[in-house]
Amino acid sequence: MFTYCVDHDTLGQLAWLSCYLTTGVHMSFYLAFLKVLALLAVTAPVALGFGFLGAMAARSHFPPLAWFGKGYIAIVRGVPDIAFFLFFVIALDQAFEWTRHKILCPDWPAEVRQGNDFLVCPQAKLPLGTSPEWVHETYGFFLAVVTFAIVFGAFAANVLYGGMRAVPHAQLETAEAYGMTQRQTFWRVLVPQMWVYALPGLSNLWMVLIKATPLLFLLGIDDIVYWARSLGGTKTAQFTDYPHGDWRMWYFLFLLVFYLAFTRVSEVALERLMRRLTHGQATTGGEAMRRAAA
């Protein structure tokens, strides 16, 4: 990257390090951090949405919907995350491809399942074999987001379900006494008040979600763990301009610091949000704030 990097053998230590840390592979490493942040930025709201729908379904008065919501929460919460991560990515991909296969190649003679193989017609492959590599990578990322959202959505659903039930019943009865319909009560009274009860649980989930991002590595995405392992490995002078020994420890230490810093920043931000939400609420926290102000 820097012009003095051409003579990499004669560099001083600091200059050597500056060249080493700006090689093309390191750029991929830094890009992987953006990937992780992007995953979080997309997954968190989607998972919250799944959670909200799940919680609404679970408290529905229409039994099949309630069973669906409660079943979703119970099943996903009860199965190890890692099993779901491996299952959903394969299952979603095969479900998409199978659907496309049925639509695009109705006259395909061969079986889709042949022993271990799952063979759809070439037009139904996702992404198509002819697509450029970035499409394949984006598709993999998309599957990862959906999987994360399904898993974390179930936990969020449980938290929100609890939050909704924690809103004082008197509030809802008062709303009804004023003649609000059930829908109005839900949106105008219940939902605005439930966040303060749900937030501790949700903030917990956010922390777990941050820490779960290295699971991307399991899904075959070149994330920060992949690059830390591959860059930290021993490099011999024959194949690189910057040979070094086994530096994996330093790379993983850097990941550790990154995650610690990230979770710390999240903690501070969530605490501020909690203060805002507590304001004027009929909770001990809200009461304490009222007294302090009075």
């Binding site: 198509l128 499409v135 598709y139």
Partner: peptide, 23 residues
């Protein structure tokens, strides 16, 4: 939310189809 996922899925499908067929 569902819309977002559906449209993302549609995008993936469309992107897949738009690519030229030379192997």
């Amino acid at each position: 939310m569902k819309k977002l996922i559906l449209s993302a899925a549609a995008l993936v499908l469309a992107a897949g189809m738009a690519v030229a067929q030379d192997k």
